[in-house]
Design a binder for these strands. Sequence first.
DNA 1: TGGCTATTTGGTTATATTGCCAAATAGATG
DNA 2: CATCTATTTGGCAATATAACCAAATAGCCA
Lengths: 110, 110
Amino acid sequence: MDTKRKAHLNARATVLKAMAHPTRLFIIEELEKEERCVCALTEQIGVDVSTVSKHLSVLKQAGIVIDDKRGNQVFYRLRVPCILNFFGCVESVLESNASDQVSVLGLGSQ
Amino acid sequence: MDTKRKAHLNARATVLKAMAHPTRLFIIEELEKEERCVCALTEQIGVDVSTVSKHLSVLKQAGIVIDDKRGNQVFYRLRVPCILNFFGCVESVLESNASDQVSVLGLGSQ
DNA sequence: TGGCTATTTGGTTATATTGCCAAATAGATG
DNA sequence: CATCTATTTGGCAATATAACCAAATAGCCA
């Protein structure tokens, strides 16, 4: 495996890893609807603000969201428009899992 | 957030998490070309067989690959055909990252 | 300035992940 | 059966994640 390919795999993995958490997926789904401030997301999710802030930081680092400070609030929105389509394949996997009864249940972390 | 949505987010996150590793992405890319036995993948990747076997087990648990034992070898292949398309959006993110110089570099794990 | 709200950062703890080695298992072949 | 190859499993150590609380920072408004 050459260096270039390795770098590319790492970059892809970083983006996927950033998405691979229930709370961050929730945030992405909500931001598909419209931008949100940290406070609104925190209220919806029901965990500590600092936790939400850190999740947002992960998404920002990966280039998935962008932040925009207005007043004393920080609004986040998706940086790339295609995230919605992106899930088509994940859904395919899940549908296959459902029909084939692959034991994916109980593996998710929260 | 209701229970059903939570379960769905967990399921999605599990699939994404399974994909979110450079070595497992490499495996997925190789299996896009054609099925491979564990030994062939191990040789390409250059880590311990047991490590490759465990990565394959993660992909299998998530419903991304299927295994097929023939003789004393085990062949793996993709279970869902759309994985290739699936990366379209990840690439979009990476392209945006490249043009915007978001510091994704150095975050990848190996 | 002082106090209030919103957000981020640092610290700590618990848990999960990853990689290696060694050992166990399974099939092929002499 | 003995042995060889291919693969999986268990155990261990190092590192990474994720959640909380507390403290720091930033902007608003009286």
